[in-house]
Simulated scan of single mutants.
Amino acid sequence: MTGIHRPDGGSNAPIEVLWRAMPVTRMLDNGVDYADVLAMQRSTADGIAWDKAAERLATAQLERARAAVRDGHPVTAFAAYRAAAADLLFAQMAFNFDSARKRSLYEAFTDAVGRAAALADPPWEREYIPFAGGLMNAWLLRPATEPIGAVIVFGGQSGWGAAYLPQADALLRRGMAVLLAEGPGQGESRLRHRILLDVDVRAAYSAFVSRALSVAPRAGLWGNSLGGLYAATTAAADRRVSAVCVNSAPAQPRLQPFRTFVDQAAAMLGTSDADAIQVNFDRIAFRPGVDRIGCPLLVLHGGADPIVHLDQQQPFLDAAHDATLRVWEDGEHTIYNHAHDRTAYVADWFADQFTAQQPGT
């Protein structure tokens, strides 16, 4: 099997590789201000390193937020802190392995989210969920009214937790609570608490389900990219899950011929042994004919996705008695290029599922 690049702690990927891994559509989907996207393009074209260019943009947004707080404009401050967090999210993505620089940038990202959290109404809550001798992190967002359900939203190899704040906005507006999860191998769960992808992944996300059910009567899972696999396997193992959305995930993951994918997979598992990574992928894979999804399932697919093909998602559909497939023929991976339509569609779908499951409905 192909060897894995050494975790030297630095990003030496050419700028065009970084732009392929983090295209404009993805940046907008994860909340980067469009003016910052344009500035990022100019800076990287001028030879400024990806992480430094994004960090400078975040610094400007943080200054804007602090000025708004001083002037008594909390709404503006809230938006600016979120914009800064999005810039820092992409700054740390320049580094696949857990270098000091990546940790520092991710801490700054978390701090910016925390400052926005304090200004939210209701304020967002930082969650620490015990698991496997450590802690898994999440952000809990509650609607202003009693929630009809709670959706746990998470990513795969590089987009984690508060990266999905725009999706949380849509769910909150429809009366749902949201748990933005950092699971095994993700975010601070990995960077600070060293919970890697070698644990019982189904049990890990079931721990998030338990937390969601403590604040709402029903729990749903929305997994993006490889996180969609975790969502499907958890729904198959945990009958408390009321609805599950799989967004562009392979049922049986394999190492991809892309350096970014390989390095990120190595960091999540904590090993540079390619065979060990594939063995772990096999361990956490969806099991056709064995795993059954008893709750409503929504599968999203992009026809232009270079990473996941539709036949790789078919096992999820075959395993559910109530399955819906939505395809965007020109859709990129996780449907970045139709973000507003995708997010509204999924949020409406979860609201419909929770409403239909209310007593007396």
Rank of each mutant, 00 (worst) to 15 (best):
M1V: 13
P7T: 07
N12K: 05
N12W: 11
I15T: 06
I15N: 03
L18C: 06
W19C: 09
W19M: 13
M22H: 14
M22A: 11
M22D: 08
L28I: 10
L28C: 04
D29Q: 13
D33Q: 10
D36E: 09
V37A: 00
Q41M: 12
T44K: 11
A49H: 14
A53D: 08
A53H: 11
R56I: 07
L57F: 01
T59L: 11
Q61F: 00
E63N: 11
E63L: 10
R64F: 00
R66Q: 15
A67M: 12
A68F: 00
F78P: 01
A85W: 03
F90D: 00
A94R: 00
A94L: 02
F97C: 05
S99A: 01
R101C: 09
R103G: 04
Y106I: 04
A108L: 11
F109K: 02
A116M: 12
A117T: 02
A117F: 03
A118F: 06
L119I: 11
E127I: 14
P130E: 12
P130W: 02
L140F: 10
A144W: 05
I152W: 04
G155D: 04
G156K: 01
G156V: 00
G159R: 11
G161D: 00
G161E: 01
Y164P: 00
A168F: 10
R173N: 13
V178E: 05
A181P: 00
P184C: 07
G185H: 02
Q186H: 03
E188W: 05
S189G: 07
S189E: 06
L191F: 04
V201N: 07
A203L: 09
A203Q: 09
Y205H: 15
V209E: 04
V209R: 09
S210I: 07
S210W: 03
L213P: 02
A219F: 01
A219E: 06
G220N: 05
L221W: 04
G227H: 06
Y230C: 11
A231I: 03
R239W: 05
S242R: 15
S242D: 14
S242K: 14
S242M: 09
A243Y: 04
V244H: 04
N247Q: 14
N247D: 15
A249W: 06
L255D: 05
P257T: 13
R259I: 13
Q264D: 14
A265V: 06
M268C: 08
A276Y: 07
F281R: 05
D282E: 15
F286E: 07
R287D: 12
P288W: 01
P288N: 12
G289N: 01
C295S: 09
P296M: 09
L297N: 01
L298H: 06
G302Y: 00
D305M: 07
D305C: 07
I307H: 10
L310T: 03
Q312R: 14
Q314T: 15
L317M: 02
H321C: 08
T324Q: 15
L325G: 02
R326I: 15
V327D: 07
W328G: 09
T334Q: 11
N337K: 08
H338N: 13
H338K: 08
H338L: 07
T343I: 15
A344P: 03
W349I: 07
F354S: 10
T355M: 06
P359I: 12
P359Q: 10
G360N: 07
G360S: 08
T361E: 13
T361G: 04
